[in-house]
Design a protein around this nucleic acid. Sequence first.
RNA 1: GCUGAGGUGGCAGAGUUUGGCAAUUGCCCCUGACUGUAAAUCAGGUGCCCUACAGGGCUUCGGAGGUUCAAUUCCUCCCCUCAGCA
Length: 314
Amino acid sequence: MHVHNFVIVSQYYHMNKLLIICGPTATGKTKIAIDLAKKFNGELIGADSRHVYKGLNILTGKDLPVDGTKIWATDLVEMRVPYSVSQYQQLARGIIDRIQIRGNLPILVGGTGLYIRAVTQHIDTVLVPPNISLRDTVYKQTLPELQKTLQFLDPPKWGSMNSSDRANPRRLARAIEVAKWYQSHPKNDNPRDASYDSCWIGLTGPLEVLKKNIEQRVRARFAHGVVDEVRSLGNTIDDATLPAATSLGLAIVQGVVAGQLQEAEAVIQWTSQEFAYAKRQLTWFRKEQRVHWFDITQKNYQTDIEALVREWYT
RNA sequence: GCUGAGGUGGCAGAGUUUGGCAAUUGCCCCUGACUGUAAAUCAGGUGCCCUACAGGGCUUCGGAGGUUCAAUUCCUCCCCUCAGCA
């Protein structure tokens, strides 16, 4: 009887656990996540805004089959179809539920900060859908016009925005979209707040090391046939505004395919863009107070991580 | 060798006509923001020095001279690049 109770309590205790592996690109997040999955009966959920699309596996660095470990929340939709953080939130939370029910440890791994935040925190306006026709008209307007519209429709929202966002047409358009939506819909006061017992692991390293890793990775992608991969795309994503079409390096490799760019120059440009992205990721995650950071150039960081997870999980 | 066009920040490239604050702009680079596009999008910085900011000081347009109150700009010579002709 005592034993029985213990098992139930134990399972319940574990029911809410969520391990998160985050950090900039090219730090080996997936590899660590797979190692941990093996040791703790974990299952991986990708948190990557470009891996949700089918295709461009080499270009986006999708870590395929590596020994058959499945990664949930990848290869979800065709590249023609825009996918958003809202859909990701619903899906990922559902996946986490099921992993926990199975008695396994969900491991959220990826570099898309907003996706991770959407899973772990509530987002007020997440249920307000995009209004395509509104966006079409709104994007034809000048910045001052957009600003005036938002100031009129939602003064508090305008007041809460910083100077950078106030100059960002995309943010203004979204805010206008949300404001219009609430003119005819009630506010959702019953959001599902995800209160996971989460452990955040962040991988990082000196910038020079990150840059070197990125360059190696970019070179490897060329060696693995990224040019052919992009060439075979044809015109499947000829709309440059599709999220999948804005994948880092795509335009550059297309330049190589078209013969306008030498591979050596392409490597330089792509590395540079990818490195800038890594720094943006660091800027984002730096504000995430819960992250336990590990430097991948330190000798024992893997065992340190394992020890931390073990302490938290058992 | 001759003729022509050029030489301006890490790179590209304005400014020279008509001498009067050099750092148009873009890229690269640095920093930051971010709540249904997030590998997206946006903001700030970017000759050097002082300064928390305001601001102040000092450099510089291939090189050396010259004219002038004042030269990236006009004049002379030299160096270099490109194109054409030999």
